[in-house]
Simulated scan of single mutants.
Amino acid sequence: MDFYQFAKSVVFTALKPIYRMEVIGLENFPKEGGILLCSNHIDALDPPVVGITSPRPVNFMAKEELFKLPILKSILPSVHAFPVKRGLSDRQALRTALDLLKQGQVVGIFPEGTRNKTGTLGKGFSGAGFFALKGEANVMPCAIIGPYKPFRRLKVIYGKPIDIAPYRERRAKAEEVTEVIMASIQELLDEHYKKN
Rank of each mutant, 00 (worst) to 15 (best):
F131C: 13
R20W: 11
D46L: 00
C142R: 09
V107D: 10
E187I: 15
A81W: 03
S39W: 13
G135P: 14
M140C: 11
V107P: 06
M61P: 02
I52W: 01
D46N: 07
I109W: 11
P111M: 13
G34C: 15
V10F: 05
L121G: 04
L69N: 15
I35C: 14
I162H: 03
E32S: 08
P70G: 02
M61K: 08
E169C: 08
V106H: 02
I18L: 05
N59S: 15
R20I: 05
K134I: 02
P141Y: 05
F151L: 01
F151K: 09
R91N: 13
F12R: 05
R20Q: 14
A44G: 15
I185Y: 05
G34M: 12
R56I: 03
L66I: 08
I145W: 01
R56L: 06
N40D: 10
D190V: 13
P47Y: 07
P47Q: 00
T53R: 04
D43R: 14
L133T: 00
T96D: 02
P141F: 06
R91D: 12
I75V: 12
E191R: 04
N59G: 11
V10Q: 00
P57N: 13
F110A: 03
E136W: 10
T13P: 10
E27N: 12
Q5M: 14
K16P: 00
E112V: 09
F82A: 03
T120A: 08
A128D: 14
L69Q: 14
A172W: 01
P166F: 07
P77H: 06
V84R: 13
S39Q: 15
T120Q: 02
E64P: 04
G108E: 09
P83T: 11
D99S: 14
N40L: 04
E65V: 07
R91C: 09
V58D: 06
I109C: 14
L154Q: 09
K73F: 03
I71N: 06
V180N: 04
V10D: 00
K160P: 02
V156G: 03
K160I: 05
L98N: 06
L100A: 02
C142H: 04
